[in-house]
Design a protein around this nucleic acid. Sequence first.
DNA 1: ATATGCACCTGTGTGC
DNA 2: TGCACACAGGTGCATA
Length: 270
Amino acid sequence: MPELPEVETIRRQLHDRLAGRTIVRAELLRSGREFPASDAFISGVLEQQVVRVERRAKLLVWRFNNGTSMLGHLKMTGKFLFVAKHTVPGKHDRLRFVFDNGEHVMWSDVRQFGYVKLIANDELERLFSGIGPEPLSTPIDELAARFVRPKTRKIKTALLDQSAIAGVGNIYADEACHRAGIRPTRRIASLTRADRIRLMSEVVQVLQESIAQKGTSANDYIDATGERGGFLALLRVYGRGGEPCRTCSIPIKKIILGGRGTHYCPNCQV
DNA sequence: ATATGCACCTGTGTGC
DNA sequence: TGCACACAGGTGCATA
């Protein structure tokens, strides 16, 4: 589900309430397909102090003070959620963490694409080195300069490639293309330098605006406090196939590109 | 090397 | 109410 703004929203909430806290209890409620259902995981997180919670691309990293981290990827439906102490686990709740300040956090995942695992910091660095630049902490001209290859690749496909730029997913790829007035079907090579600067500026802009609204709840996304994101109402194209463009009133077109639903205005986007 | 298709899962909405 | 099907925020792999 979540892209950079949603993961960042959750990161901030987890960090604010849990930085410096220690995990005093960890329970495996139900084993998932992708995350290790092992006693080793439980004993690996137990008694660990969370130094801070970080984000890289769409990954959440809980840094412990012993050189290891807990790495989480929410994929489509993963959730870290603050819950009340006596919450009875539901069908999709998989892990529960209890902290020394009394906070309870549940990890749930309906579709089970997500994962939570222990990872050593050196392995984490290796993983990070394969991920592209962070849009919110990289100069626009550097983002643009790196967005040139492979030349024949379609622009939206490149935006979704985490090794080209980190954290952009299906919603914000479509939104950034609309704001930049560029069709997602175009090839990288067709972009001028000015086009690339504009596209990257719009990527950054839309991500920041969405973070300010705590993300987009297109379907069932909720943040760590259980709230829905407010950016849905501000989307210009995503999920609006057939509806009038907010700029020119021409119906938004929906196509499939790279196997993903893709939305654009046939009038505003060239 | 890229593109496509599919696979991993469950749930929801739509149309019959 | 049931059923079949399409589709959903992400990635990774096998095959053209």
